[in-house]
Design a protein around this nucleic acid. Structure first.
Lengths: 225, 225
DNA sequence: ACGGCTCTTGACGCGTTCTTGACGGGCCCG
DNA sequence: CGGGCCCGTCAAGAACGCGTCAAGAGCCGT
C-alpha cells in the first residue's frame, strides 16, 4: 500500500484527489499548508508527495526546499501557471515531476505510479534480464555476454537498471537522467550519449548497429530484450 | 462547435439534455445503450461523453471500460446512486467527472465545459490511434504500417498529434502551425505542405490519394481514422 | 604518495532532420 | 482560353542531435 501525502489548500481539489487515490488502493494523508506538510513528511513518511505550489503560509519553492532538506521522498508539483520558470525552479529544487492545472485525474495517477516506482526502486532489485546475447543479474551485479563475464561500472548499472525497468518502452532522456544522476539533472548533457556508447560497446554484438539499446532521436532510449 | 455524445436510456432525460446542450451551441449525438455508445465514440468522435451508468444492455462500468479502450475522450458519468462505490469505480476506470442525479442542468453544462477544456489540454498523451492501415502509439513514439515499423521524425509526430487530437475534425492551418511550430508561426508557409506530403508517403496506402490525411483546400487538414 | 579506475566535460565529425526556395499541375473564374 | 490560386513535389544548404574520442579530475585502495 502506497502512502500519498496531498498538500493543497483547496478543499475541493483535496477531496477529488483523495477519492481518486484511495480508489486506486493508496493510503492518503493531507495537509493544507506548508508547515503541516513538512511535519507530515517527517511523521507520516509518505511514499510520494503531491504538492500544490500555491499555499497560504509559505512560498511553494520554500516548502519544497524544506521537504528536500528532510527527505528524499518523490515530490510531484502542481501549479496553476504555465510559466516554465516555475517549472525549472521546482525541478532544480528536486521535484520529481510537474503537472500543470488543469489536469486529468488519470494523468496524475499515472505520474504518481511512475514516481513511486522510481522512488521505491532504490532498494528493490530487478530480476535477471535475459536476451539472446547477454544476461544481466542486477542483484548480483553480474553481466555475462556470450558466456563471458563483463565488468560494468556502477553508473553503467544504474543506467541499465533504469532502462530495464521499462523493457521495450521508451524512457525519456529527462527521466533517465533524473533516475541516474538525481533530480537536478533534468537538463541537457552528454552523460547519456557517453554511457549509451559505453554500454553498447560492452553488451551489443555489433555496437554500431544496436539491437537492444536503441536510441529514439530527440526523446530518449529504449531497451529491447 | 463541441460535439457531445449523450448516452441514456431514459428518453425524457435524453431529450432534456439534448435541448439544453443544443441551446448552448453544442452538437449532440445520442445513444440509448452501451454497444451503440461505444460505436458512436468510434464513428462520431465526440469531444465529450455524458454517460448514464444504468443502461439496459451492459453494466455501466463495462461501457466505460470499452470506451476507454477505444478513446481518451473525456467522460462525465451520471448515476442515480449516492453510493460512493460506483463513483470510485467510475473514476478508477478513467471517468473525468461524476454527477449524481438529480442534478441541475446548469451544473452539468458547467462540467461539460470543464471537461472539454481539460480534454484539450496538451499535456495529456493520446491513446493509440488505430486505422485499418496503420497504428500510431504516441506515448511510445511507435508507428506501424501494415505490421512494419516505420520511423517518424519528431516534427512529423508533432504534426500527427495535433491532427489526431481532433479525429475526423478539420484543423485549420493556422492552428496546426501554432500547435507544432509555436505561436509566432500563424502565417503562411509551406511547412504543412511538406510535412503532409512526408506523412502521406510514410503512412498512406496510396500517397497520391490520401484517405486518412485529407486536405481541405484553403482551410487546413483533417485526420480520418 | 602512487597507480588504477571511474566519472565528467569539451571537442569534433557525421548523419539526419529541418528549413527554405523553386517549379509544376489541377481547379476555379473571368 | 488564360490567369490566379493553392497544393504537391523536389532538392539543397543549414542546423541539430548523436556517436565518438580523449584529456583531466576525483576517488579509492595500496
Amino acid at each position: 500500500m502506497t502512502r500519498v501525502l496531498v498538500v493543497d489548500d483547496d478543499p475541493r481539489l483535496q477531496r477529488t484527489l483523495t477519492i481518486a487515490l484511495r480508489a486506486h488502493g493508496n493510503e492518503v494523508v493531507t495537509a493544507a499548508d506548508g508547515r503541516t506538510a513538512v511535519q507530515s513528511v517527517l511523521e507520516d513518511a509518505p511514499d510520494v508527495v503531491i504538492l500544490d505550489l500555491g499555499l497560504p503560509d509559505l512560498d511553494g519553492t520554500e516548502v519544497l526546499r524544506r521537504i528536500r532538506a528532510a527527505s528524499v521522498v518523490p515530490v510531484i508539483v502542481l501549479s496553476a501557471r504555465h510559466e516554465s520558470d516555475d517549472k525549472i525552479e521546482a525541478l532544480d529544487l528536486g521535484a520529481d515531476d510537474y503537472v500543470t492545472k488543469p489536469f486529468g485525474v488519470e494523468e496524475l495517477l499515472a505520474r504518481v505510479r511512475a514516481a513511486v516506482r522510481r522512488g521505491g526502486d532504490l532498494g528493490r532489485h530487478l530480476g535477471p534480464v535475459v536476451t539472446d546475447h547477454f544476461v544481466l543479474d542486477f542483484a548480483e551485479r553480474r553481466a555475462t555476454v556470450e558466456g563471458e563475464d563483463v565488468r560494468l561500472t556502477p553508473t553503467e548499472w544504474r543506467v541499465l537498471e533504469a532502462l530495464c525497468r521499462e523493457p521495450g518502452h521508451l524512457v525519456q532522456q529527462q527521466d533517465l537522467l533524473r533516475a541516474v544522476w538525481g533530480p537536478s539533472y533534468g537538463r541537457e548533457s552528454n552523460y547519456l550519449r557517453v554511457y549509451a556508447n559505453q554500454l553498447r560497446r560492452k553488451l551489443e554484438p555489433d555496437p554500431t548497429n544496436p539491437r537492444h539499446l536503441v536510441t529514439e532521436p530527440g526523446l530518449g532510449y529504449r531497451f529491447n530484450p
